[in-house]
């Protein structure tokens, strides 16, 4: 018997989880479609463009937290832990439904909402334009989607970790952890940039997460100056986040292994 990963058992789990949860997924995705169409009606397509990153992270985190809550929820945890499947398979189910299937599905919903908006409310914009995003902000679809996916890859393991580590207030703890992480990161970056740009007299630094964290803007008085982030720091940024995300997935996995009800 394969004790780490069996495709047969994994497929059984996919079916079992899907059959028990399809209704809640349908409701969740239905709400997302309605929300996106509504937002694009109110604020135009730019609104859902801005909404994409935000909603992907929020909805993705909520869905992941919900899947992994079955490990903490008192009634549910016994049956989840006692299900004859390996830990890797159980963990992979969370990743499959919360990441691998979620991101493409969410993106399809995003374009579906955009399509509805274009055909019904706003004929002036082409779907291609939506795909690429506003020229001023994004050079390509890659530049638009990748930072969002990366951001989600950072947020999701925190959701997983909170769901398996804590018995109570998992959602509140998760929000607190995410906020602390980003505030901490931005503060560290801010201090770093302050030191790198000592010669400039400025009172505020803000970063654009998009475009691979390649530049930041410095506000001095009333004007902004764009400064390219040194290549080494760009690489460090990406590497650090990747290591952090991978580390969080590993920690969440190990916590799951030691999970009691």
């Amino acid at each position: 018997m394969n004790t780490t990963f069996s495709l047969k058992r994994f497929w059984q789990q996919i079916r079992f989880h899907g059959a028990g949860s399809w209704k809640s997924y349908t409701i969740a995705y239905g709400i997302l479609i309605i929300l996106m169409v509504y937002l694009s009606m109110v604020g135009g397509y730019k609104m859902i463009l801005a909404f994409y990153s935000f909603a992907l992270c929020i909805a993705g985190t909520l869905i992941s937290a919900r899947i992994f809550r079955s490990w903490s929820d008192f009634g549910n945890a016994s049956s989840t832990l006692m299900l004859p499947a390996s830990l890797t398979e159980k963990f992979s189910i969370g990743l499959l439904y919360g990441l691998v299937l979620f991101v493409p599905l969410f993106t399809c919903i995003y374009y579906f909402s955009a399509w509805i908006t274009l055909n019904i409310f706003d004929h002036a914009i082409s779907i291609k334009e939506i795909w690429r995003g506003p020229e001023s902000l994004h050079e390509s679809a890659y530049a638009f989607f990748m930072p969002t996916i990366m951001l989600f890859l950072l947020v999701q393991p925190i959701a997983l970790y909170s769901a398996v580590r804590f018995r109570k207030y998992q959602f509140q703890i998760m929000i607190l952890l995410i906020i602390s992480l980003f505030v901490g990161y931005y503060y560290a970056q801010h201090m770093l940039m302050l030191n790198l740009t000592k010669t400039l007299a400025f009172n505020y630094v803000y970063f654009v997460v998009g475009d691979h964290l390649t530049y930041f803007s410095v506000k001095s008085g009333g004007s902004y100056t764009t400064i390219m982030i040194p290549a080494i720091i760009q690489k460090l940024n990406i590497t650090m986040w990747m290591i952090f995300a991978a580390g969080m997935y590993v920690v969440a996995f190990l916590r799951l292994k030691e999970r009691e009800i």
Binding site: M1, T3, S6, R9, S78, L81, M82, L83, P84, A85, S86, L87, E89
Partner: peptide, 13 residues
């Protein structure tokens, strides 16, 4: 919680 073990045990809480 080996899968082989879990296949051979059932708890009805």
């Amino acid at each position: 919680r080996h899968p082989g073990f879990l296949q051979d045990i059932f708890l009805l809480p």
